[in-house]
């Protein structure tokens, strides 16, 4: 055994020559290098660089960042309770209420600023739930195949055949219109597309050589899924996660519009839902939250598209 150990160390001495040679050449005289080793750029950083080159993606990111900052710091700068009655109902925008008041006389601007927090949180958390469930189901099903795949596909088909909005309405009605139930309901009805996407990616990757090579190097299933296949399947998943935020925001708006919003927490959807009957009397109470939802979804979609362009190998040139 010791001979084996010894002999394997042999390259060290030989290689140290290479090292000294490389060191000697490296500092000043770059021309001396045999083959310049390209600055190793990790795939994530390469994608970020690519993303920053897309104007619409960057615009979306700036808009999204602005909205997020507004919802985080806005309430401190504009500390008016969005549920409190501050004036006469249907006051048009004026100096007292910059964006007017709604049918109960609540400040629309305060609603926008405070409601954004709920809307964005619902969007992000629901998207997270969507992705966690979808990726887990899709990964297991695509990686193992066989009866596991059949079972999981059957389950996700069951969810796919139910109309998502109706299903979410049933869930919210059953468990009560609270922000948490709304979030969970949105996640529960929209994970199937992420599952299908992940399953397809896993099935594509499962038989590639480097997966086989990892297996031949002794990797177990868990290691293969988490460290080998999933990272390679991530690009489309990230894109779909981003877009899922937009879908979840729209969903929350939809549910609230149908009267299933949480009445105790101001959100953009709730503002539209409660004021929709008076849209001809007080356009401002519906239009501004509508515009806010539009901007948020637009921002998220632009970012999603930007990421897609940056990580999709078919669109990117090496």
């Amino acid at each position: 055994m010791s001979t084996v150990e010894q002999t394997l160390i042999v390259p060290r001495t030989e290689a140290s020559n290479v090292k000294t040679a490389a060191n000697a050449a490296a500092p000043g005289t770059t021309t001396m290098r045999v083959q310049p080793v390209a600055r190793a750029l990790s795939p994530a950083r390469a994608a970020l660089r690519q993303f920053l080159r897309s104007p619409s993606g960057v615009a979306g990111a700036i808009l999204l960042l602005a909205l997020i900052l507004a919802t985080i710091f806005g309430p401190m700068l504009y500390p008016i309770d969005p549920l409190e009655i501050v004036g006469l109902p249907f006051s048009p925008p004026d100096a007292d209420a910059l964006l007017g008041t709604d049918y109960l006389g609540r400040d629309v601007l305060a609603g926008l600023i405070h409601g954004g927090r709920a809307t964005m949180t619902v969007g992000a958390v629901a998207a997270l739930i969507t992705i966690v469930i979808g990726v887990s189901v899709g990964a297991l099903s695509g990686f193992f195949g066989g009866w596991i795949d059949s079972l999981l596909v059957k389950i996700s088909e069951f969810f796919q055949v139910l109309p998502p909005l109706l299903f979410a309405m049933v869930l919210v009605t059953l468990f009560g219109p609270r922000l948490t139930t709304i979030t969970i309901a949105i996640g529960a009805v929209s994970w199937t597309s992420a599952a299908r996407l992940t399953r397809a990616e896993f099935m594509r990757l499962r038989d590639l050589d480097f997966i086989k090579a990892s297996r031949a190097a002794g990797a177990g299933n868990w290691h293969l899924i988490m460290r080998v296949v999933l990272p390679n399947a991530l690009p489309p998943i990230i894109v779909s996660a981003t877009l899922a935020i937009g879908v979840a925001i729209l969903f929350e708006g939809g549910l609230s519009f149908l009267g299933l919003g949480d009445p105790n927490t101001m959100s953009w959807g709730l503002m539209i839902g409660q004021n929709r009957n008076y849209v001809l009397d007080a356009w401002w109470a519906v239009t501004f939250p509508g515009a806010a939802i539009f901007l948020a979804v637009l921002a998220v979609s632009l970012v999603g598209d930007g990421i897609n362009d940056a990580v999709n190998p078919r669109l990117r040139r090496r």
Partner: peptide
């Protein structure tokens, strides 16, 4: 799993695809 990659290991045919790109 303990044997693979440790007591027995394998070199694959296609070096272009047998390494993890990430």
């Amino acid at each position: 799993r303990a044997l693979r990659g440790n007591a027995v290991s394998m070199v694959f045919q296609e070096p272009m695809t047998a390494l993890n790109p990430l």
